[in-house]
Design a protein around this nucleic acid. Sequence first.
DNA 1: AGATGTAAGGTTATAGTGTAACATATTCCC
DNA 2: GGGAATATGTTACACTATAACCTTACATCT
Lengths: 174, 174
Amino acid sequence: MYTLAKACSHHNHGHCISDAINAARQLCDERGVRLTSLREQVLELVWQSHKPLGAYTLMDMLAQASTRRVAPPTVYRALDFLLEEGLIHRINSLNAYIGCPSPTQKHQSHFLICQGCSVAVELDNTQINQAVVDAAAAAGFTLASHTIEINGLCPSCQQQGSQNESAKLGAAQA
Amino acid sequence: MYTLAKACSHHNHGHCISDAINAARQLCDERGVRLTSLREQVLELVWQSHKPLGAYTLMDMLAQASTRRVAPPTVYRALDFLLEEGLIHRINSLNAYIGCPSPTQKHQSHFLICQGCSVAVELDNTQINQAVVDAAAAAGFTLASHTIEINGLCPSCQQQGSQNESAKLGAAQA
DNA sequence: AGATGTAAGGTTATAGTGTAACATATTCCC
DNA sequence: GGGAATATGTTACACTATAACCTTACATCT
């Protein structure tokens, strides 16, 4: 699991990518499903950053990489496979997809989404999960799945924001 | 606030509608914003049921009601206004809109969404809210807003499901 | 290796959701 | 009533996603 601080600041992102690909290969192998080169390529593209990417952005990246035309169904089918296997998540409020750092553990989709730098990081929080389970039970509701999307500012963007405000103040005073 | 049980079973839904319209009128009056007849009409259409409705469904209902053509911007602008004033919520996983039963209280968008009957009901749960606030704080994340969408089965659809299973069993034995 | 069945990907067309940009009408306030 | 601001009408288009059908690649058996 990546921390918010790491994802939002400079880090050796190559490790994130290779870890994700390796984990995916092993997982698909164990499950007897096929991580074809197209699917692996899409997974790698999704992992190019910690920012959720739209299907059409991925489609363009694919087309760029292969110098041939790529149609929507191609990328959507790969995305469907990756979603199915839990290798990526979909962020509904953004119509965008992001790599899952812990695909071996079944879990719900909980995200912190920075409105400054667009980075989205998964949250693994027992209290939230328990609160949701309890609330559903109290309402007599049988829980199947749930998603939580939390919007705000990551630490570095908060700093950035304060600096901008200081700069503005300074400019105003000058 | 409506309970799940009420929304999912038979009730005098006229009260839900008239309550919502009256609350909206008063709220808009207090805020000095204009609940025009179009906006009120869209709000009333949204409240035709406890099921979230898509923008194009609402557009068709509007066209039906007025016997003239209605274009997308018309309904989207009304929806934007109603969202802005907190009179409706958007359910991202469904691309759909639903009336807010408590528009005077500022709150986050938390929903129980029944996969059987499509009814969606707002949740107002202190534990969930607190857990989200705590989790964000622990990550150094400045919280702006968040949405929670919980999928599953409401009590009546659970019963329905069990009956179907019993029926199937019965048929198989016969 | 060749036959055959299944899964994956290619291709075309279209459905569904949402907005930009500009014109017209309505309302508010003086 | 005049003029500004707000709201709505209208056209066109962008973005997101899927249906349907065909071809290719792979896996397995003989």
